[in-house]
Write a protein that binds this DNA or RNA. Structure first.
Lengths: 145, 145
DNA sequence: ATTTTAATTAGAATTATTCCAATTCCGACT
DNA sequence: AGTCGGAATTGGAATAATTCTAATTAAAAT
């Protein structure tokens, strides 16, 4: 038995997740996903396009949009919007917040303590049920990485 | 003495805040601001434009954008972006979260318990200093208002 | 092999926003 | 009251991001 119920190889999980949604693992989808994993700086669709091109010169921007949307649908990638401007994409599946450095424009992932999301959900008034919570910090960070 | 150091009339605070930034209180700015106060449903610039027109038929969309931007600069209004799509505007100055009802598309303000923002800021790693925190819930609400 | 369905592609279309140059409006100062 | 100068507004053009569409290609199923 070489296939376990929950493989943790990125490639496996991609193929698996796509299959779960009845979708195919095309070269375009695989490369787009790998690009996101390689440099987790929350690139825009345009930036993904530029990074994918060398590997797949024939790819079109429309396909990049399609692939990103597909990956978001499969819960492999999160679409991030915290300011007017292009959507950014993030392959971090763990619950996390985003820190947006207003000086550099960079965005960092911030791990959340266990239970925080539930604590936040508990402040909602009766009748409100959240399936997801997004937290964005804005400010300045000394880390120049 | 009829003018106190901190008047709470919306109109006063508008005039005051604009003056503080060296800006004038024009009819366009006043009407745009009042429209936001009247119906706090987080309208887009287009929606604000439509609501302002009856009162100020000659106003242009560019001016609505200008006024909204000005109000945001003066900290009278918050620009809200939590999904791809047009920026929405919110005249609620108190710290609050947003609840986005995925069924109706409506957005509700959610009051935050005292201290929560500070608690959240405390989870940031060393070197990160947040000036603002945004919290967005997504889900379904029973409230049909 | 053929048929069917899914995915990709290029380019057009749409949407949201910003830019720009030309007025108009106001306030300060004669 | 009249004029000067900066601020604000306006309409339209320009830009940016995304979505749509119709045609083509690729892959899976029969």
């Amino acid at each position: 038995m070489s296939t376990t119920a929950h493989s943790h190889s990125p490639h496996e999980s991609l193929v698996q997740r796509l299959a779960d949604s009845g979708l195919r693992a095309t070269p375009q989808r695989e490369v787009v996903y790998n690009i996101l994993l390689q440099k987790r700086d929350h690139p825009t669709a345009d930036e993904v396009f530029a990074r994918v091109k060398p590997e797949l010169p024939g790819i079109s921007l429309a396909t990049v949009y399609n692939c990103l949307e597909t990956l978001v649908q499969c819960d492999l990638v999160r679409a991030v919007n915290f300011e007017r401007g292009p959507t950014r994409y993030c392959p971090n599946l763990k619950p996390h917040a985003h820190f947006h450095d207003e000086r550099s424009g960079a965005t960092y992932d911030v791990d959340l303590p266990e239970g925080l999301i539930d604590q936040l959900k508990s402040i909602l008034p009766p009748g409100f049920h959240a399936s997801a919570v997004e937290i964005t910090f804005r400010g300045e960070s000394k880390s120049l990485r």
